[in-house]
Structure formats: structure tokens, C-alpha cells
Design a protein around this nucleic acid. Structure first.
Lengths: 272, 272
DNA sequence: ACGTTTGTATCGTATATCGATACGGACCTG
DNA sequence: CAGGTCCGTATCGATATACGATACAAACGT
């Protein structure tokens, strides 16, 4: 699964869950646009070539609607045909993601600082955005040996079990933290993932004390990650700076001692 | 400018250039979907927060249409409000780009090979897709010191002046090459960019002989890039493997001798 | 206080979108 | 090879949906 929030506020959209009744709260809402985006979002659930019928089923729209949306998206390059005739996301989506990164002032400011951090640390450096139940990787500066997913911007990780997520949680008030943790699925990504509510709270409180959070093998075995939160002008957490290293090269304590100050400094430089 | 092709085949869309007459060739084309995408594409021309009116002007749609599209995109997370109330691309676009990379079989196959190549070369390794007048970076594995744009997937570079572009051109027939070069704007990116038609042809012919192409400071001063084309099952070029190095560390000849075999081997492994 | 922006909201109209349905081809299966 | 069942594509009449003009208040820069 790519995203956990089901595409914005559904209450306002004409498509409310399984209900067939179309109650239009928002007079300006374009249902055909939403349906076209549901078509694209189907590939977030199944990252493989899909037939029109599969897409229609996944997006919960009629085959006709899927047909029209797919034709339109195909002609504009946001959908492509795979070699076997199936449908795939189109490369135009890369252009739009590029625009996102390029237009976003925070990311523009963050990039040189992260590049500097990458140079000074020689470890992988990531920049993630806080997005409710998940965090979203926006910038990834790899080290030498990496996996497929460690190279990809756009990847999401649950907030509760990522160091970046917990670093950001630490800056919320208790009620907001509780709300997020309760709504989270808390499924383990590795055998080391901390899923127990009390233990997560301990980690969050620790992050409050130390000014940074860390996670050992919670999302990838053999990896230790350390993060500091970036705050906006209202002192709300919006992003996190991550430094990730390998346990084959570092002990957890050495890694923390060495890199925590660097991550905190970078995050402070990006905060208001 | 992000993309050169004006969003697919305009002839089939109801919006034909400056004409106001809406002639619908394709009965399945959803104009509101297209307009919503034109709204997003406006940020490809201006990567900054924009007002609704600016967007409407840039997308060549009425303010009302822009208003409806923006509301819809906002509610679905594909558009966001900036701190000053302007509109910006939304982070949901990153999810879709992630889906694109994850669903694409070629990119899935390419990633481990590129990671290996990056490890063996210790230089920056890129993977680009052929897209008519431009090439589109899909995977970027940075080296230590990089610039902002060198880290971003989704970036486009003109085909005619990039080593990857010319490596791919070399596998087309002469008429197709001529067609692409004629339609290209051939604007210099650096003082070293080769814009002369005959000289570009020389470079393409050289790439045919050698099995790879290279470019010295043509898109970034101080940088040498070397590329080999990836062919599909019809022997048509679809992508290119790039290795990029710094002229402060390499002479052009040494760089070519050292890395050309590696790039060619990686590209062959990805071809059919 | 004045134009001139902006974003937002309203509204009657007509047209663009709707979903059901039909068609032909591809692919299995018996 | 006949009889299924999928597929993608095309058609069509009805009406819900999206259309663009317009109005409005708020914000801004004189």
C-alpha cells in the first residue's frame, strides 16, 4: 500500500464509501476529475499492469467511467500501455512530481543543507514530510549500497515506527499523538518493529528529552536511523531530517553520538 | 520548462491551440480531466506558488474552470496551499510518481543493475527514458557532491545535447534522427553545448561506431557524461544508462576508457 | 478612500458526461 | 471446433453535471 489516507476528505466528495447516494456537499467538486485520479491511485494498491476492468473494480467506478478516464489519461501521457496491452502509470507523473519538488520552498531550502549533511556524514540522508499516519520521503541521498526502495522518493512509511515519524510526534501535544497512534494500524514491518503502544510512547518521550529520535531495525533489518524534526513558524512539525547507517559499520551508541548533533543542527537550520 | 511535448496529442483533445471552437474527435475524452491536468502542468512552466488567476491564464482556461479544478485537486491532495495562500503542487503527486517507478517493469529491472554499477564506478549513475525531444531522468544514484537538479528524478534534458539522448538517437534510422533534430530547439545549455546540426550528426555517428555516446560539459560545466542505450524487443531505443563524472578528477579519455565498458555492459543486460 | 487585485459563491443553461448495452476479438476449455 | 468467458472498444439517449458569466467581499497598493 502506498498511501493510507483515502484520497482527501471523502465526506465532501460525491463518492462516500460504499454508499450509492451521491450527496454533493461541494458544488465545485468535479467528479470526473476525481474518478480519473482514482484510476491512477489504483496503481498505488497494485503496482502492476492492469486491465480496464481491474482498474474499474479497484477504483470502484463503472467500467465506462474507467474507460473514459483511461482514454483521457492515455492521450495526455499520465497512463501508458504496457507491452502486453495492460495499463500502467505514465511518465508524465514524473514531471508532476518534479514540479512538486521544485516548487516547494521547504524542499528547495532543504536540498543544499541535506547535500552538505550527506557530504559530512557519508551516510544515507533522507528528508521526509509529515503526513498524518505516514511520513513521505521527499529527498533521498543514497550512500553506496542501497536497496530499490531506499532510492525512491514518494515512498511512505508509517509514522509510529519510523524515527522521523517519532521525532515529529514528539513535537505534538499528547492528545494529537494519542490520536495518531490509535488510528495507526501498527503492523510490524520487521521483527524488531515496536508496535506496543506504551513502548512507542516511551520512544516519543525519549525523543522529547533528547531532541531527536532513533529506530534500530524497525523498518529494515541491519539499519539504524536517526532523525530530527523540522518545525514551521507555528512550531508544528512538518518534516524530518534522517541519517541512516548500517549496523555492520556502527554500534547504535556510536552512531547516535556521532550523528545526532549533525541531524539536529540541519533540522534547526530548516526550522523557523 | 519541464516538458516539451504539449501534453499528448492535441488534435484529439477538444482544446486545439488558440481556437475557441471545441471540435470533439474523441467521444471518450473528458475535458474536465484534461483541464485539471493543465492546471497541474502550469507549475511545470512556473515553479512557484500561483494564484488562481495566474493558473487560469497559464493553463488557458477560464477562471471558473480553474476554480473548480483547483478545488477538486485541493480536496484530493494533488494541490496544496502555500503559506501565503497561493497554490502549489500537492504531495500526492509524489505518491503517483512512486507508483510509476514501482509499476514499470523496465525500471524495476534496471534498479539493481544500476546500484551495482554505482558501486563499481563510484560515480553518479543515471537512468533516463527516451521521450522524443527530451530524455527524462527516472533513476538517479548520486555521488558525493551533487547539485539540486542532479538529485531529482523527473528532470528533463534535451535529447540532442545529452549523451543519453545521442546514444539513443544512434539506434534510430537517419530519417527519424533528422526529424527529431529538426524539431528540437537546439538552445545551448552551457557555452560548450553542441548546437550545430552537422556536429551533432558527427557525435551520433561516433556513438554508432563506438556503441556509446559521451558529452563534455554540454549540460553542466565541469561534468563529463557517458551513456549507452537500452533497446526494447524491436531493437528500438527506450532508455539509457549514464555515468557522470567530474573533470576535476578525470580526463575525458581516461573517463571513457574506464567507464564505457561498464555502461555498455549494463545497457546490454537491460536490453532484450 | 479609491481603484484593482484577489478568492469565493451563485445560477440558469446546455452540453459534456453518464452508465447500460452491444459488438468483435482473444483466449481457454471441453 | 464449438461454447464459453474474459477482454477492449464503440454507441446512444437521458439527464445530471459541468459550464462560464457574473456578483460579492476582502485584501492590497496606491
Amino acid at each position: 500500500m502506498t498511501s493510507d489516507t483515502p484520497s482527501g476528505k471523502q465526506a465532501k466528495s460525491p463518492r462516500n464509501g460504499g454508499d450509492q447516494l451521491l450527496e454533493v456537499d461541494d458544488r465545485l467538486f468535479l467528479q470526473s476529475v476525481a474518478r480519473a485520479l482514482y484510476v491512477l491511485e489504483a496503481f498505488g494498491r497494485d503496482a502492476r499492469p492492469m486491465s480496464l476492468s481491474e482498474i474499474a473494480a479497484s477504483a470502484r467506478i463503472t467500467k465506462s467511467a474507467a474507460q473514459r478516464a483511461a482514454q483521457t489519461l492515455l492521450s495526455l501521457g499520465y497512463l501508458e500501455r504496457s507491452s502486453d496491452g495492460g495499463l500502467l502509470p505514465g511518465r508524465r507523473l514524473l514531471d508532476r512530481a518534479f514540479d512538486y519538488l521544485r516548487s516547494n520552498p521547504l524542499i528547495e531550502r532543504a536540498t543544499p543543507i541535506l547535500i552538505e549533511l550527506r557530504k559530512n556524514s557519508s551516510e544515507r540522508v533522507d528528508f521526509s514530510l509529515f503526513d498524518d499516519l505516514s511520513i513521505l520521503y521527499a529527498i533521498r541521498l543514497q550512500s553506496k549500497r542501497e536497496t530499490f526502495f531506499a532510492t525512491l522518493a514518494g515512498r511512505r512509511i508509517p509514522t509510529f515506527c519510523s524515527s522521523g515519524g517519532r521525532a515529529m510526534l514528539a513535537h505534538l501535544d499528547d492528545a494529537a499523538i494519542d490520536d495518531i497512534l490509535r488510528r495507526s494500524e501498527r503492523k510490524a514491518l520487521t521483527p524488531k518493529t515496536i508496535t506496543d503502544l506504551d513502548k512507542i510512547w516511551d520512544k516519543v518521550r525519549e525523543a522529547r528529552r533528547e531532541g531527536y529520535a532513533y529506530a534500530v531495525e524497525e523498518s529494515l533489518l541491519g539499519e539504524v536511523v536517526l532523525s530530527a524534526a523540522v518545525l514551521d513558524d507555528r512550531r508544528q512539525p512538518v518534516a524530518a531530517v534522517h541519517i541512516a547507517g548500517s549496523l555492520s559499520e556502527w554500534t547504535v551508541d556510536d552512531f547516535r553520538k556521532r550523528f545526532a548533533p549533525l541531524a539536529i543542527e540541519a533540522a534547526r537550520a530548516l526550522s523557523y
